[in-house]
Simulated scan of single mutants.
Amino acid sequence: MPRKTPEVVVEPVRRNPTQQRSRERQERILAVATQLIASKGSDQLKMSEIAERCEISIGSLYQYFPDKSSVIQTLAERYNAESRHCIEEALAAVEDAPGLNAAFSALLDEYYEIVLASPAMRDIWSGMQADKQLMALELQESRIAGGLLADVMMRVYPGRAAGEVQASAFLIWHLGEATMRLAISCAPEEGRSLVEAFKRMSLREIMGLAAEKKGFATADPVS
């Protein structure tokens, strides 16, 4: 039997505008896409409708974004960059366990407010789950964000095994993303309660490392 030639997958190429007019048009496209996602959901996002609302031809739109996935990816990348900046800024000055406790708590509160202020993010997340490449992007971002948290945890708990800390930080951050999605899908009061519950759970793991380091985890409970 003749050997089947492997299929070559060519990924779409996004245009990187350099001129002011092109950058403004790209921003307009992304703004319109965000509005449509917020009102209709990512599943109902259509390139033809984006072009119509931007008053450009579909051919012009494809010069900037070759398909719907590339639009969603760009929006997700921007959101990820903003989130990463918040993490770095919140954790930069942490030097001890109490500081980590306070900074992580404040970071989750700020992160939740950012998500609440960006109603399209829930549907952008949903659109990413239906695309393997976008799912890989999300996983990669969780690793990066988890790595930022792990670096601070190692600074606070230098005696811990790096692999253990990295695994905990990666899991905490990835579950945190899932918590935010769930929280903004619920009524505001319930959503806030879910964020607070996750905060307690994750801080027990983070602060538990300090207890283990000092030998408290294996100590007999006080009677």
Rank of each mutant, 00 (worst) to 15 (best):
V156M: 02
L108E: 10
A38D: 03
I144D: 09
A106I: 06
P6M: 02
G59Y: 12
S223A: 15
I206K: 10
P188A: 11
S105F: 02
L61Y: 09
C54S: 04
F198S: 02
M121P: 07
Q133E: 10
L149Q: 01
R181A: 11
I124K: 01
Q26D: 13
R3G: 14
E189V: 06
E113W: 08
P66Q: 07
K199H: 11
D220C: 06
V9K: 08
A197I: 08
G147K: 00
R155Q: 14
P158C: 11
Y79C: 03
S168L: 15
A117W: 08
D131T: 10
H85M: 10
L134S: 06
Y111H: 12
G163P: 08
Y62K: 04
A161V: 07
L137F: 13
K214P: 05
E138N: 05
G127Y: 13
A103W: 04
D131S: 12
M154W: 08
R3L: 13
N16R: 12
A187N: 05
V222K: 00
G215R: 05
G176W: 02
A51H: 09
A217V: 05
R25E: 14
R122Y: 09
V71G: 06
I206A: 09
E205K: 00
G159Y: 11
L149W: 02
Q19Y: 04
S185C: 00
N80V: 15
G208R: 03
A162E: 15
D220K: 11
F104Q: 03
D123G: 06
L30Q: 03
D220I: 10
E11D: 12
D109G: 09
A106H: 14
L91C: 10
D151S: 04
M47Y: 11
L30Y: 12
Y157A: 01
M1C: 09
E113H: 09
L149Y: 02
V8R: 13
L194M: 13
E212V: 08
E52S: 15
L137M: 13
A102C: 09
S142C: 14
C54K: 01
Q44I: 01
V195P: 00
I144G: 04
A210D: 13
M153P: 12
M135Q: 14
A183I: 01
G41M: 13
S168T: 10
A120T: 00
A162V: 15
Q26F: 05
G147M: 01
R78N: 14
P119Q: 04
F170A: 04
F198P: 03
R204K: 11
S202V: 06
F216A: 13
E110W: 00
A81H: 06
Q19L: 00
L203S: 02
R84V: 13
E88N: 15
L116A: 07
L116N: 13
I87T: 01
R84I: 15
G215H: 00
K46Y: 10
A120R: 01
R192V: 06
L148P: 14
A38P: 13
